[in-house]
């Protein structure tokens, strides 16, 4: 049962993790909208250190306004960016 659903607003956490993570720095701390649930996958953070027996984690495509991500992106307010975020890096965002 995915934790988050399409249309929901979420915030990307900054877990301050060392090592291999697939959440780009530029989206951490930002609020976006869930586009779709992609399924569950083995956590790349575990796979990167050879642990293929860990828990699977949900993955979602999340959409952000470019004007939210970059302080110098102002001319095209409808432009967006979509990227994949793992469930443990997400929390609900309100408002």
């Amino acid at each position: 049962m995915p934790l988050f659903h399409a249309g929901e607003r979420i915030r990307v956490l900054d877990l301050g993790k060392a090592g291999h993570v697939r959440i780009p720095a530029y989206v951490r701390g930002h609020v976006g909208t869930v586009v779709q649930f992609c399924g569950v996958f083995l956590n790349p953070e575990d796979l990167a250190i050879g642990n293929a027996g860990g828990r699977v984690v949900g993955c979602y495509r999340v959409e952000f306004l470019q004007t939210d991500l970059w302080t110098d992106y102002s001319e095209y307010p409808d432009d967006t960016l979509v990227t994949e975020i793992y469930e443990h890096w997400m929390e609900p965002a309100h408002g």
Partner: peptide, 13 residues
């Protein structure tokens, strides 16, 4: 399963 894509990425990171 000697080198996964994730391990290789961790390698160059």
């Amino acid at each position: 399963r000697v080198i996964s894509l994730d391990e290789m990425r961790r390698g160059f990171e």
